[in-house]
């Protein structure tokens, strides 16, 4: 069953939720927020799109296969911990520097990895459940 209202609004919601998820991800830098919550919001955006316009559309919008996204995210989170090994010999010791007055650290890379793992993980379940529903 396709609802006209849902289909019409889904793309707008999708865009808003995706933007919101990125905002939550970046806000986690200094305030409550971060990769996990951001990832959940982002995954909810894709799930809305999948409900309204079908799983195929959502899969195309995601570009990468959810599992690939999950693997890439885990790899990115892993890489963020490596500099710590080089500098003071402990994994996940985060490095800090500043760029144009904004404090930047490898933590944001870690959070980005978490974000991708959460989006990929939630969607790999979600898409499969939706697809089997349709079948």
């Amino acid at each position: 069953m396709r609802s006209l209202i849902l289909t019409a609004m889904a793309r707008i919601f999708f865009a808003i939720m995706l933007a919101g998820s990125v905002w939550v991800l970046l806000r986690g830098h200094n305030e409550p927020g971060g990769g996990f919550i951001g990832g959940l919001v982002g995954a909810a955006g894709f799930a809305t799109l999948a409900l309204a316009a079908g799983v195929e559309t959502a899969r195309r919008a995601l570009v990468l296969h959810p599992v690939v996204l999950m693997g890439a995210g885990l790899a990115i989170a892993f890489v963020s911990g490596v500099p710590g090994i080089v500098t003071d010999a402990s994994f996940l010791t985060h490095q800090w520097g500043s760029l144009a007055g904004v404090k930047l650290g490898t933590t944001i890379v870690f959070d980005l990895g978490v974000y991708m793992v959460v989006v990929g993980g939630v969607l790999s379940f979600m898409f499969r459940l939706y697809e089997e529903d349709a079948a």
Partner: peptide
């Protein structure tokens, strides 16, 4: 695990 998942295809 990360690498093999990324090489899904």
């Amino acid at each position: 695990a990360a690498l093999t998942a990324a090489l899904w295809r």
